[in-house]
Design a protein around this nucleic acid. Structure first.
Length: 217
DNA sequence: CGTATCTAAGAACTGTTACT
DNA sequence: AGTAACAGTTCTTAGATACG
């Protein structure tokens, strides 16, 4: 691959323009967003990003690997597949993606007919809202049948793909109910009492979880 | 068969240049 | 400053290949 300085680029001696030379191409930051919750296969990324074609995904992943943002990992059988995951350098883009999410939220409005939604995007949105908590909690969020593990209590929330081995709280429901809680500011207790969300585990754990993300308990 | 990648053609976009 | 024509670049589409 030609180095950034040879390709179309801004050719400015400035960190911002250099960063944009690397992550400013179409799809690159969306791929970073989709990899924030854990490694994904080529076909998963393709399915998650309609409009992104295989050859362009292949090219973007190669560029991201060449810049050290993404690494390939081969999964052993029986699930033999190539997994693409963020490197520690790629993870440094997390606050950038969060900041863009906050910036873009003011133009989000309600989803239109041709807007795609994805539980993972809601989870990224949740993760960026973490305000901290002194009560360590481990919860499973089951959004549209997809499980995610949430751990709070540290300086940053851990939020990854897949169910935890032992969760003290399980919160399950459709994406629109989670969106009502996370994005539209609805109360978790109200959503549970009207059946929009199903809670398994102590009510206090849900209250702690909500507070850890600055959401209404 | 599923996954990952590649090729070729054409469409769409972007930048450059010349002109008013 | 704004616009039009052209050229170059990037992206999409459709189909194919390599590999385990």
């Amino acid at each position: 691959m030609r180095p950034v300085t040879e390709r179309r680029g801004y050719h400015q001696f400035c960190g911002v323009s250099r960063a944009l030379d690397i992550v400013g191409e179409r799809w690159t930051l969306l791929l970073v967003r989709d990899l924030l919750l854990g490694g994904r296969r080529f076909s998963d990324l393709l399915a998650a990003l309609p409009g992104l074609t295989p050859n362009l995904l292949s090219r973007r992943l190669k560029e991201m690997q060449a810049h050290g943002l993404v690494a390939q990992r081969r999964l052993p059988p029986p699930h033999a597949a190539t997994l693409y995951e963020l490197t520690p350098l790629g993870r440094e883009l997390e606050p950038v993606v969060f900041a863009l999410g906050r910036f873009g939220a003011r133009w989000l409005g309600a989803p239109t007919a041709d807007d795609r939604t994805d539980p993972r995007w809601a989870m990224v949105s949740l993760k960026r809202r973490y305000v901290g908590s002194d009560r360590p909690r481990c919860a499973e969020l089951r959004v549209d049948g997809l499980s995610f593990t949430v751990r709070t209590g540290g300086p940053a929330a851990e939020l990854v793909d897949g169910a935890p081995t032992a969760a003290e709280l399980v919160l399950a429901g459709p994406l629109r109910s989670f969106a009502a809680w996370i994005v539209q500011g609805a109360s978790a207790r109200a959503l549970v009492s009207e059946g929009a969300l199903v809670r398994e585990g102590p009510a206090q754990a849900l209250t702690d979880l909500a507070r850890a993300f600055g959401l209404r308990p």
